[in-house]
Each structure stands twice: as C-alpha cells, then as structure tokens.
Amino acid sequence: MSISTSTFADIFEVVQTVIETHPDVLALDPIADLKAKSTVRIPYTRKPKLNASSAFMTFSKSRKNWIGLLLGELQHFVTGAQADITIMHSSASAKSSTKRAAQTWYEFVRELYDDKIAHRGDISEAQARQLVKLIDLLSASGFKLKGCGSLEFVDENGQVLA
C-alpha cells in the first residue's frame, strides 16, 4: 500500500489552515507551529514542591504531547544541518539532573525526554527556561528553526515564565 504525495500535501494544507485561523490551537507538528507563529504559548499550572528550587509544571494532555513531540524532534537535530549539529553539541547552560555536571544541549534534550515524557515525570520551571533558551538559540543560529517564533510558558495567573 502506498500513499500518494497529494495526500501529504492535503494534510499539510489543513495543518497550515488550523495554525493560521486558530493561533491558540497547536498542531501535532511543533516545528510547523514554531515556524508559523511569532510566539507559541504553553499554559501550565504551578505545582510547588517543598524541597525543590523551582516549582513543577502541570500541563494538559495535549500540551504535554506537543512538548513530547518537540523534544522528540530536537533529538534528531544532531544529524542534518551543520548549524543545528554545532548547537546541539555545544555546552548547555542547564545542569544534568543525573550526573550533576555540565552537559550538551543534546544530552539535555535526551534526558528531559527520557525523564519527563517517557517516564511521565513533571517538568520543572528551571527545565522549561532552558528549553526556551535552546529554542531561542536554534532560532538565532540554527538551520531548521532559523527565524522561528519563540516559546513561552504561561502559568494560571497569566505570568510568563522568565
């Protein structure tokens, strides 16, 4: 069984229409969302922990799925364009939660995906800040996300995570 290229074109056209007409609705293609919108806003609910340096975040199922798809895509940025490879193998400002040391952006993305998406853990506000930094870096100097929109996490009070 084969699928014609016109079927993919039709699907892509529908996704583009949804992105343009419903800016708050996220498609199941985070790369397309980031490229099509000036800002992708992810609402979350703060879940403070007593011994944590930053609060954890609770997302709706669709938003968590979108983040999981984004992290899955970012894991593949270590192949392809040299600009993306260079960024993903550069030193990240995020510290590893497992080895308590510096890590590359690729290691950050892989660890975040494994811990938070595959094992269903909560994402902390500190990790979300680092994800925003990575998207900004890829937008400024990368290839696949060059000139894309920014990513913002907004809490239940309307405060943007800074």
Score class of each variant (00 low, 15 high):
M1C: 09
M1Y: 09
S2W: 06
I3Q: 12
I3W: 08
T5D: 15
S6P: 11
F8L: 14
F8Y: 14
V14D: 15
V15T: 14
V15H: 12
V18E: 15
V18A: 13
E20P: 11
E20K: 15
E20T: 14
E20R: 15
T21N: 15
H22W: 08
P23I: 08
D24W: 04
V25A: 15
L26K: 15
A27V: 07
L28T: 14
L28Q: 14
L28W: 11
I31T: 13
D33A: 13
L34D: 09
A36S: 13
K37I: 03
K37Q: 05
T39P: 02
V40T: 04
T45S: 14
T45C: 13
R46C: 04
R46E: 10
K47P: 07
K47W: 08
L50T: 08
N51C: 14
N51W: 13
A52C: 10
S53R: 13
S54V: 03
S54R: 06
A55D: 09
F56Y: 12
M57N: 09
F59V: 10
S62L: 11
R63N: 13
K64L: 14
L69A: 11
L70W: 02
G72T: 07
G72Y: 03
E73Y: 13
L74F: 10
L74S: 08
Q75V: 04
F77L: 11
F77H: 06
F77K: 07
V78G: 07
G80T: 05
A81V: 05
A81G: 04
Q82D: 08
Q82H: 06
D84C: 02
D84P: 04
D84M: 02
T86K: 06
T86D: 11
S91L: 04
S93K: 08
A94R: 01
K95T: 13
K95E: 15
S96R: 02
S96P: 04
S96H: 07
S97M: 04
S97N: 07
T98A: 12
T98P: 06
K99R: 12
K99C: 06
K99F: 11
K99G: 08
R100T: 11
A101C: 12
A101D: 14
A102M: 05
Q103T: 01
E107Y: 01
E107G: 02
V109P: 01
V109K: 00
R110G: 03
L112K: 02
L112M: 09
D114R: 10
D114F: 09
D115P: 03
K116D: 09
I117M: 12
A118N: 12
R120W: 08
D122C: 10
I123L: 15
S124D: 08
E125S: 10
Q127Y: 10
Q127H: 08
R129W: 01
R129K: 09
Q130L: 02
L131G: 04
L131K: 04
V132S: 10
L134H: 00
I135M: 01
D136Q: 03
D136I: 00
L137K: 03
L137I: 01
A140I: 00
S141T: 03
S141G: 00
G142V: 00
G142W: 00
F143T: 01
K144G: 07
L145T: 00
G147F: 01
C148P: 02
C148L: 03
G149H: 05
G149T: 02
S150P: 03
S150R: 10
L151R: 03
F153Q: 05
V154D: 12
V154M: 05
E156R: 07
E156G: 12
N157C: 09
G158Q: 03
Q159T: 04
V160F: 09
V160M: 04
V160C: 07
A162I: 02
A162S: 12
